[in-house]
């Protein structure tokens, strides 16, 4: 490789970050995804300011199943609530669920994948069996198992870590069913990383296993974790939607998934109330698509083979 070109590579961390951003934002997909995401995050941040307090059957402002009009931009639902109002409030719940579930999934997945890959042998075999178990476990089944337990312990009205029990269950269930995917990717990456000479060198200079994992392997996993993290978020939004759709959501804090399920139950499709289904549906699609776009762009940016300078 050339030394002279290498001189052109930015010297400091800040410039490295700038270069990274430059390359990342060079992707049309990444820009579109970010733009879309920023919009939804902004909406989720101040729903009351945008559309007033969350409407219920009591303070509903419109007639039943009204098509979009000047007053109700996205029409109304079967009890006269403004769909725009519901969708905007749903954004917050959906995003919070997806992000928290992703954090759980990344932490668990990375820890297990890295430990299995690094230690190998029996540790690897058992951890991978566990991973495979969760990998094939449908989130719906897990939710059905956990929900009654949590409700039994907490009661419907209680709060766990500031979340209502049904929300908490959904977050945990999504986290628990998506980490296996992360663990597999992290493990295979760790397997190849640990054969690298710099790990041998770290051993020779006296580093312990834990410090090798934290200081040498983890930083080199960041690209994979980041790129797949975005995909996990996208997946989490879908899973949240389907769980809510199956009636496992919280009717008092409607997420997009809950809305879809309500619309379905109200017979929106047969009644021709397309706005009721389309509004939350389009939101789910665009947010998960944005995360997929961002994930792909991250993957592309981090992938050394696609970089001009290795």
């Amino acid at each position: 490789m050339s030394e002279s070109i290498v001189q052109y590579y930015p010297r400091s961390r800040t410039r490295a970050i700038k270069a990274f951003l430059g390359q990342f934002l060079g992707h049309g997909g990444a820009r579109l995804g970010l733009l879309c995401l920023v919009f939804f995050v902004a909406v989720a941040a101040v729903p009351t300011f945008l559309v007033g307090p969350l409407q219920t059957a009591i303070n509903a402002t419109g007639d039943f199943l009204m098509p979009p009009s000047g007053e109700h931009l996205l029409g109304t639902d079967e009890v006269g609530r403004d769909v725009l109002n519901l969708v905007v409030h749903g954004a917050r719940i959906s995003l919070v669920i997806a992000l928290l579930a992703t954090v759980i999934s990344l932490v668990v997945g990375t820890t297990i994948g890295m430990t299995a890959g690094y230690y190998g042998g029996r540790v690897d075999v058992w951890l991978m069996r566990l991973t495979d178990f969760f990998f094939v476990m449908p989130s719906f089944v897990l939710a059905l198992v956990i929900t009654p337990v949590v409700l039994e312990v907490m009661g419907r009205g209680g709060e766990i870590l500031g979340f209502r029990p049904s929300l908490f269950v959904i977050i945990v269930v999504i986290g628990m069913t998506s980490w296996a995917f992360v663990a597999r990717i992290v493990r295979s990456q760790t397997l190849s990383l640990k054969e690298r000479t710099f790990i041998d060198r770290a051993r020779v200079v006296g580093s312990s296993n834990s410090s090798i994992m934290v200081r040498h392997i983890l930083p080199n996993l960041v690209p994979q974790i980041a790129a797949n993290g975005a995909l996990v978020v996208a997946g989490a939004i879908y899973v949240e939607t389907s769980l809510s759709f199956l009636g496992l959501g919280d009717p008092l804090q409607p997420s997009w998934g809950t809305l879809l399920s309500l619309a379905q139950r109200a017979g929106a499709a047969s009644a021709g109330a397309w706005w009721y289904l389309a509004a939350p549906g389009v939101c789910v699609l665009s947010v998960s698509l944005s995360f997929v776009l961002i994930g792909n762009a991250l993957d592309d940016t981090f992938n050394p083979r696609r970089r001009v300078i290795p």
Partner: peptide, 23 residues
């Protein structure tokens, strides 16, 4: 790694491919 610490202190290695040997 802790039992080997005194040994590591006295015996070191230089690797063939320096680029691979550096994180």
């Amino acid at each position: 790694s802790s039992a080997l610490r005194p040994y590591r202190h006295r015996v070191q290695m230089i690797f063939q491919d320096a680029y691979q040997a550096l994180n």
